[in-house]
Amino acid sequence: MQRVNMIMAESPGLITICLLGYLLSAECTVFLDHENANKILNRPKRYNSGKLEEFVQGNLERECMEEKCSFEEAREVFENTERTTEFWKQYVDGDQCESNPCLNGGSCKDDINSYECWCPFGFEGKNCELDVTCNIKNGRCEQFCKNSADNKVVCSCTEGYRLAENQKSCEPAVPFPCGRVSVSQTSKLTRAETVFPDVDYVNSTEAETILDNITQSTQSFNDFTRVVGGEDAKPGQFPWQVVLNGKVDAFCGGSIVNEKWIVTAAHCVETGVKITVVAGEHNIEETEHTEQKRNVIRIIPHHNYNAAINKYNHDIALLELDEPLVLNSYVTPICIADKEYTNIFLKFGSGYVSGWGRVFHKGRSALVLQYLRVPLVDRATCLRSTKFTIYNNMFCAGFHEGGRDSCQGDSGGPHVTEVEGTSFLTGIISWGEECAMKGKYGIYTKVSRYVNWIKEKTKLT
């Protein structure tokens, strides 16, 4: 034993070699072989497995989906700052455009905790909710729209109204504003409101030439003092309507412009014939205590009207009353817009006519005020429907199939267009061939041609 100890002390290297040989010859039971080890760690190889990531292109799944990435790591994937920024906006807080917040056709661009709407022409605001041009839906104005110097929408209202708090709607500024039905039992019968379409306001006024200088022999019209197929109006439903009495009662109609003036057809009036105007009328054979009678003290036909040349060209006249009318729910003026808007309103496509005229061709006159909704007829169809001249200051309205029309005794009465609950004068009943005849239409004086003249002559002093 002493000898062994001496050998170990003198030859430590020998001992180490012996131990190493023993270990190498022993069977290893701690580690699995290569094949079995792979069965336990069965993990798919990654895209760049075996390579240094710093030297390969980034992978979106590896960089940002398996674990949260930084902007720089995302930049490695896209290799483009702009594309990385677009991805980053949604990656950080989701897609803010998912709810489609942009209105009126706006395009949404996502941002971090926010979004941006790219608005089409005519709109602005956070969600493109603000109209900035009158060309689109009248700028959301209830009545009139004008573009300011910086191309912003400025709404306005006709006389007797003021802008509401929203700067879009119009509200009454006087007790009985024009064009409004205020009798409670008839307010439910107000005709369907007309909503502004998209309009090209630059070209809204037709490029028409008034044929002022045409000389033409007097034409022989049949029954051209021209509501057939209409309905009984309720008291106060058309408070701007008046009836004219002269040699015979209810020979023509008219509309209240203001307390002192009536507008009617020029062919209705004769110099030297006494005319009485009755406002607030409903049943011409009954006294309903809503009527107001006034005498006409002055007749002003349009300066281009000449019955000797043509009885229905420039067929418009103004009547001055001896005493002002007292405005109330049964006696209310009709609204008159400017030339541009009167023309736009007419193009809405349908209007209402009213009167006490004959209820059928050569038949009896109506006792109760009649009204009828009539569609506008395109000019080409209008011209083809008659052998008589249709001037540019006239328009056609009615039904091709016949059966409904204005008729004798309705002449001078109103053709009105309702705009968001307020009625505007767009025409004056003038003439036609018979009444409600198939293929024939009622012919009306186009008020847009005469609004400046009306307003100039009827100013209240």
Rank of each mutant, 00 (worst) to 15 (best):
G179R: 00
Q143D: 00
Q143V: 01
C178I: 01
P414L: 12
V92G: 15
T209Q: 11
T426F: 00
R298W: 02
G439N: 11
P44N: 10
E456T: 11
F144A: 00
C252F: 01
G409C: 12
T158K: 02
C128R: 01
R384I: 07
W356G: 03
T276K: 07
F121T: 15
R162C: 04
W240L: 00
T276C: 04
W118G: 05
R43Q: 15
N328Y: 00
D322S: 07
R62I: 04
K168N: 06
T158I: 09
V153R: 06
G402H: 06
R226N: 13
V202N: 13
F238D: 01
A233V: 08
L383Q: 14
K51W: 03
N295A: 10
Y352Q: 03
I297W: 03
C128Q: 02
Y341D: 06
C119F: 01
T218D: 07
T225L: 11
N36Y: 05
R75H: 15
I336F: 05
K45R: 11
L14C: 07
E98T: 09
L52H: 15
V419Q: 05
S99M: 05
C382I: 03
H400P: 14
S365P: 13
T461V: 12
S187K: 09
K146I: 09
A164W: 03
L211T: 11
D338T: 10
E433S: 14
K152I: 07
H282S: 09
E129Y: 01
V30A: 12
N113H: 07
A308M: 10
V377R: 05
V174F: 05
V77D: 15
E171V: 09
L244Y: 03
P414I: 12
G246M: 05
E259K: 07
N5S: 13
Y312W: 11
S11T: 11
G412N: 04
L367E: 14
C396A: 01
W240F: 03
E165W: 07
R140Q: 10
F87K: 15
D33I: 08
T218A: 07
F399D: 11
C117F: 00
A279R: 00
V92Q: 15
F348Q: 08
T417M: 04
F424Q: 00
I428E: 00
G105E: 04
V263L: 09
N328S: 12
T209D: 11
S411A: 11
C335I: 00
L372M: 13
Y341P: 03
L103C: 03
V202T: 13
W88S: 15
H400S: 14
K146E: 13
Q408A: 05
M6E: 06
R46G: 15
N48F: 04
E286K: 09
C145G: 01
L372Q: 13
Y341I: 05
S220H: 07
Q2E: 09
T81F: 05
P101R: 02
G442D: 03
E193P: 12
A317L: 02
C108G: 00
H361E: 11
T445P: 00
L244C: 02
R298V: 03
P301F: 11
I297H: 05
D378H: 10
F424R: 00
L460R: 15
D410M: 15
N100W: 05
A436K: 15
I256F: 01
K126R: 10
I390T: 09
